[in-house]
């Protein structure tokens, strides 16, 4: 049976991430899913933008592409349309996907583009030393918010749901088995498949906000989390400050490629060129 390490570029290890970085836990879970599905390496293309999270494809033994900040989904869309047989996966950070790349995220989800997006949300710009991102909660500290963040963050899964994605799920680095389960679903279904993974950045977010080291941060991720099916039975005041995990959307609506193929059939009368 295939193992996680079979899909790792071991010559690139150890990776650059800090001790206890949640992105590593996510990569571990992703590799495990690849091993479980026993994928053919040549059938997969993993694309990223810029950031600590976006370094991930460099460690994976698939077709990989490291692009520009925020634009991974645009590159991935091109790859998918040029070679629809490839399973295209984008990995991004919260800054990459929701700040500079927010526009691409909205439209890839709206098109129900046949891409899996895994967003590693550590509530901060890790790579550039800890500026706040659209995912930094109000009042939290960042290098650009020394007196506390004035802005509000938002529920990223709800945004992607509103844009029309076929699949929307959230897990945390404290729930690696859920990460693997959701990625497995995403990789075996069509249309825009979105998995948000809350990760810890002990170095910038954790240290500045005095949240402790990796162990303390993982423990608070565990404690502050509730499964969406359990949350549905609780009044809103009981859910304040809680991270909801689970599968929020599971649809099988027509995808961009379904529409594209139908259009080609309509124009050509089904005659293959």
């Amino acid at each position: 049976m295939a193992e996680a390490w079979d899909f790792l570029r071991t010559d690139k290890m150890p990776h650059i991430w800090c001790p206890g970085c949640g992105h590593g836990v996510m990569m571990n879970a992703l590799l495990r899913t690849m091993a479980k599905l026993d994928v053919n390496k040549d059938d997969i293309c993993v694309v990223s933008g810029i950031g600590c999270a976006s370094r991930l494809p460099g460690y994976l033994d698939f077709n990989t592409l490291h692009t520009t900040h925020g634009r991974a989904l645009a590159f991935a869309t091109g790859i998918k349309l040029a070679n629809p047989r490839l399973k295209v996966i984008v990995v991004s950070g919260d800054g990459d996907a929701t700040a500079i790349g927010g526009n691409h995220l909205i439209h890839a989800a709206r098109r129900n583009m046949d891409i899996t997006l895994i967003c590693m949300n550590n509530n901060i710009y890790g790579m550039t030393n800890g500026q706040y991102s659209p995912m930094t909660p109000t009042s939290m500290l960042a290098t650009t918010a020394p007196y506390g963040n004035l802005e509000r963050n938002f529920d990223l899964c709800k945004l992607v749901e509103g844009c029309g994605a076929n699949y929307v799920a959230r897990a945390t680095a404290a729930h690696p088995r859920n990460i693997s389960q959701y990625i497995e679903y995403a990789l075996t279904h069509k249309g825009f498949q979105f998995v948000e993974v809350m990760t810890q950045c002990p170095t910038y977010y954790g240290r500045r906000n005095k949240l402790g080291g990796p162990v303390e941060m993982i423990n608070s991720l565990k404690q502050n989390t509730i499964l969406n099916t359990a949350a549905a039975k609780l009044p809103p005041e009981k859910l304040e400050g809680k991270i909801q995990i689970g599968e929020f959307v599971k649809k099988e609506e027509l995808t961009y490629l379904d529409r594209f193929d139908a259009m080609v059939d309509r124009i050509t009368g089904g005659v293959k060129p």
Partner: peptide
């Protein structure tokens, strides 16, 4: 094994 961010445990 599954919690190690560095794939160092088997």
């Amino acid at each position: 094994e599954i919690m190690c961010p560095d794939l160092a445990v088997k």
